[in-house]
């Protein structure tokens, strides 16, 4: 059984701001981290490795420094790592990214579709949740989203799976046959820490780097050229002005809240 987990290096978005004068992103001093959702996808991959001896490959698309997230994944127990990297991929939106990653996965798996491809639910920089579904289309395999628990019957290709998928109104148990693409929620098993031995192995491991030629990409489907969506402007979010602010405690505060609600006609007291 071969499991591929896609991981993304993202800026720690809590610190990203817009420079109000130039209207451009201020990335200086913003730390790069593994997309938190992807850590949960990796954990599901590691569990399948523990249980079924699956081979686990991690794939990341990004600049050379994204190798860091791949080494971190290797340290936690992934078997091999692939970085998809080239200037030609620059400016890719979710369509071009989905195509590029799907091509890279096929290349990394010797032209075959792996049994299972896992993504985090979404990446915290873009928050689109579109690349997992997009890759499922390019690979032509079933898609199951928002998964929190994965069970697979032993046997690899053609094996049965049963997963819990969280919808808006409840949880659905979904069954199907591999291969498949799934996106994983944080409500799944907590990510493990890398053992020291893993970190040492990861530091020495080779990371395969693939460019547009290696993955046999059609030049018109990658990068800016392969991206239907264009970002026209960026701007800081509008801030709603605050109202009254008072410093009170205990019963006085309670009274102030009730008075305010009454004044607004929102509740009637007594």
């Amino acid at each position: 059984m071969h499991v591929v987990v896609c991981v993304k290096q993202v800026p720690d978005t809590t610190n990203v701001r817009i420079n109000p004068e130039t209207n451009t992103l201020m990335r200086e001093g913003v730390e790069s981290i593994v997309n938190p959702f992807d850590e949960y996808a990796l954990e599901q991959g590691l569990i399948l490795k523990d249980r079924h001896g699956a081979k686990l490959t991690v794939v990341s698309m990004g600049p050379p420094q994204a190798t860091a997230v791949l080494r971190e994944s290797l340290a936690r127990g992934a078997d091999d790592a692939v970085l998809v990297s080239s200037r030609a991929f620059g400016g890719a939106d979710t369509l071009a990214t989905s195509y590029t990653i799907a091509q890279a996965i096929k290349k990394a798996c010797g032209g075959k579709t792996p049994d299972l491809v896992l993504f985090g639910k979404q990446a915290i920089d873009g928050d689109t949740a579109q690349v997992g579904p997009g890759v499922s289309e390019f690979l032509g395999v079933p898609l199951v989203t928002y998964v929190r628990k994965i069970d697979v019957s032993v046997g690899g290709y053609g094996a049965k799976f049963s997963v819990e998928s969280v919808m808006d109104d409840g949880v659905a148990t979904i069954e199907g046959m591999l291969p498949a693409v799934m996106t994983v929620l944080k409500e799944s098993d907590a990510p493990r820490y890398a053992p020291l031995s893993g970190a040492i192995r990861a530091a020495k491991a080779d990371v395969m780097v693939l460019n547009e030629k290696d993955i046999g990409a059609n030049p018109s489907e990658i990068g800016l050229k392969g991206s239907p969506t264009k970002v026209v402007t960026i701007f800081p979010p509008p801030i709603k002005g605050g109202g009254e602010k008072i410093v009170v405690s205990g019963a006085d505060a309670a009274k102030a809240i009730v008075d305010f609600l009454e004044k607004k006609g929102l509740v009637k007291n007594g």
Binding site: I239, K240, G242, K245, I246, S249, G250, A253, A256, I257
Partner: peptide
């Protein structure tokens, strides 16, 4: 407080039971 119509600077643990 930047978006609140009414902002109360105080101890929530005290204010909840009082309310």
């Amino acid at each position: 407080f930047g978006v609140a119509d009414l902002g109360i600077v105080g101890d929530a643990l005290e204010i909840i039971p009082a309310l």
